[in-house]
């Protein structure tokens, strides 16, 4: 094996942590990005607009 156990564990602990922090920030940024607001509001309301049987065209 190229990586020994110790290296892998160290990698998991350090890079894994930064990966998670980075990913959390990215998700937050995407959700809170001002220009996305309109799209999200629209999506939230869109499902209420048509009845279940509206033809799909």
């Amino acid at each position: 094996m190229i990586f020994d156990h110790h290296t892998l564990v160290g990698f998991a602990k350090s890079v894994g942590l930064f990966y998670l922090i980075g990913l959390s920030l990215a998700a937050l940024a995407y959700a809170l990005w001002p220009s996305n607001r309109e799209r999200f509001d629209r999506a939230a309301k869109a499902i209420l607009e048509d009845s279940e049987d509206t033809p799909c065209l």
Binding site: D4, H5, L8, Y19, L23
Partner: peptide, 20 residues
């Protein structure tokens, strides 16, 4: 991608556990 990395990072080191 997001889901598999969690699994990989946690499980991969166990496959070298024989050393310890």
């Amino acid at each position: 991608l997001v889901a598999s990395i969690g699994g990989l990072v946690e499980i991969a080191p166990l496959f070298t556990i024989d050393e310890t």
